[in-house]
Design a binder for these strands. Structure first.
Lengths: 139, 139
DNA sequence: TTTCTAGTTTAGAATTATTATAAACTAGCT
DNA sequence: AGCTAGTTTATAATAATTCTAAACTAGAAA
């Protein structure tokens, strides 16, 4: 069974990052990772989806906590936009974004679409964790 | 007098972007642009600086409004960080940033320090407004 | 299997950043 | 000098997020 297999995978994912596989976390996993395509979301939107038409609700606080834990564990990526709301991405591979200022929508840019021929050395004692390009677009 | 000259310059800047040169806006101009070096700030920090040890206060709302107006007019640049707080930059020239996740500090990267050899075409009907690279660093 | 404990969830309160409101004020044209 | 649209202000409202502390639960140990 596919669902069962995913479940096992989620448990392993969680275990490997010191998170107990609770039913809430597994439910969130399903919403985030049981998909063909990666996607972008805000906690608010995720909360709505998860708790829409459901009898057993997952609290907003738990969704916040879990999303943060997944982000720290590297299963989610936080996206840079500066719009007083955190955007996350289930695509954790290195890639970039278009940010449309009009409708505030993000679109992925595959990492191969951008090439950097020169990158600066990080300040002493620091190392580069990641590099992200945001291209702001408008009409 | 240097101060006077700057004043004239500010008035002109404001006029050119349809902003009346009020004493509040000029005061904010002084704090933002009367400097040798450009810098990064949050509205909160700017508010503290402007109203520290002063008898005549500029209201927080005015500071928000003015910063937004200056940003729209192109005299300030909003910086991408995803940290639920807006960061602004008085350096409006095209450039990039290091973002230190430890102390949440931003450092400029001169535009010449990063070179892109490949940039994607924007989606149909949209044009590129700006391109910003953020390099996240950590210990 | 039961017991125990540290980790987790929860609702709601608290906090933080920002935006809205509407009354008082002011720049600058006439 | 008077008028009016633009501006400032204190305060309230909103929105996103974090905190809190009590109730619950996973899973190790008895």
């Amino acid at each position: 069974m596919i669902i069962n297999d995913n479940l096992k995978m989620y448990v392993q994912k969680l275990r490997s990052s010191n998170l107990r596989p609770t039913k809430q976390r597994l439910k969130i996993c399903k919403f985030l990772f049981d998909r063909k395509k990666t996607f972008h979301f805000t906690v608010e939107a995720l909360n709505k989806k998860i708790n829409k038409n459901k009898t057993t609700k997952v609290s907003l606080a738990t969704i916040y906590n879990t999303v943060e834990a997944f982000t720290n564990a590297g299963y989610l990526k936080e996206i840079l936009t500066s719009k007083n709301k955190s955007y996350y991405d289930t695509n954790i591979k290195s890639h970039h974004h278009f940010y449309d200022e009009g409708n505030k929508e993000l679109t992925d840019i595959h990492y191969s679409q951008i090439k950097l021929s020169k990158v600066p050395v990080p300040p002493k004692g620091k190392k580069i964790k990641n590099l992200e390009v945001v291209i702001r677009i408008q009409k």
